[in-house]
Lab assay of single mutants.
Amino acid sequence: IDAAQIVDEALEQGITLFVVNNRLQYETSRDSIPTELLNKWKQHKQELIDFLNQLD
């Protein structure tokens, strides 16, 4: 699994991931984030931050 897949998966569930001051953040209108997704974010945090920083 790679960062792009995780970002896409989040988007499919209505969650936008982004980076502020090198910290992973998210925006969503959902009430809660699925635990499975949160765990993936934690496991791949640095990859996600690097990936999202490249997009900007």
Results as ranks from 00 to 15, higher is better:
V7K: 02
V19M: 03
V7F: 09
N21L: 06
E27F: 14
S29N: 12
R30I: 07
I33K: 01
Q46W: 08
L17T: 00
Q43L: 13
E27I: 14
K45W: 15
Q54T: 12
Q46H: 08
E27R: 14
D31E: 11
L24V: 04
L17K: 00
N21Y: 05
Q5W: 11
N39H: 09
Q13H: 14
D8P: 01
S29R: 10
Q13E: 08
V19P: 03
R30T: 06
E12L: 11
E36P: 06
L55C: 09
Y26T: 03
E12P: 01
D31M: 08
K42A: 14
D8H: 15
N21W: 04
R23L: 15
T35Y: 10
V7A: 03
V19Q: 03
V7W: 07
V20Q: 11
H44T: 04
D50F: 09
E9C: 05
Q46V: 07
I33G: 01
T16I: 15
L55E: 06
D8S: 15
S29G: 08
L37A: 03
Q46C: 08
I33N: 02
I1V: 13
L11S: 07
N53D: 05
G14T: 02
L48Q: 00
Q13R: 10
N39A: 14
H44P: 00
S29D: 12
L48C: 02
D50N: 10
P34K: 04
Q13L: 14
E36S: 09
P34M: 03
I15N: 01
K42D: 14
V19L: 07
P34S: 06
T28S: 10
Q13I: 09
L48H: 00
I1K: 07
L37E: 02
I15L: 02
L38P: 02
N39K: 11
L48V: 06
P34Q: 04
T16H: 15
E27V: 14
D8V: 13
L55V: 10
K45F: 14
L24C: 04
L11K: 14
A10E: 00
L37F: 07
R30G: 07
S29V: 09
N22Y: 05
V20Y: 10
L11A: 13
L55F: 10
L37K: 02
A10N: 01
D50S: 09
H44C: 06
E47F: 07
E12Q: 14
D50M: 09
Y26G: 02
E47Y: 06
W41C: 05
W41A: 03
G14F: 05
K40V: 08
K40A: 05
D50R: 10
N22W: 04
N53Y: 08
T28G: 05
E36K: 06
Q5T: 10
I6Q: 02
Q43R: 10
N53Q: 10
I33S: 01
F51L: 04
F51K: 01
D8R: 15
F51C: 02
I49D: 00
A3V: 13
Q5K: 11
Q54W: 11
L24D: 00
D2L: 14
L52A: 00
Q43I: 11
V19N: 02
F51V: 02
T16A: 06
N39D: 14
L11Q: 13
N53L: 13
A3C: 13
E9S: 04
V7Q: 02
A4T: 04
R30Y: 06
I49P: 00
E47K: 09
K45S: 14
S32W: 14
E47R: 07
L11W: 11
I15D: 01
E9R: 04
H44Q: 03
I6M: 12
S29K: 13
R30E: 05
F18W: 06
D8C: 15
Q25L: 14
Q43D: 09
E27W: 15
L17D: 02
N53C: 10
Q5F: 12
K45D: 10
T16D: 06
N22A: 07
Q5E: 08
F18P: 02
Q25W: 15
P34D: 05
N39S: 10
V19W: 03
D8N: 15
D2K: 10
S32P: 11
Q54L: 12
I1E: 07
D8K: 15
Y26P: 02
Q54F: 11
L52Q: 00
E47P: 05
R23G: 09
R23K: 14
D56W: 09
T35I: 14
A3T: 05
L55K: 13
A3P: 13
Q13A: 14
P34E: 04
N22F: 05
L38F: 07
I49H: 02
Q13T: 04
L52R: 00
Y26E: 01
E47L: 12
N21K: 06
K42W: 13
G14S: 03
A10L: 03
F51M: 03
S32T: 11
A10F: 06
Q54C: 09
P34Y: 03
E12F: 08
L38H: 04
L37T: 04
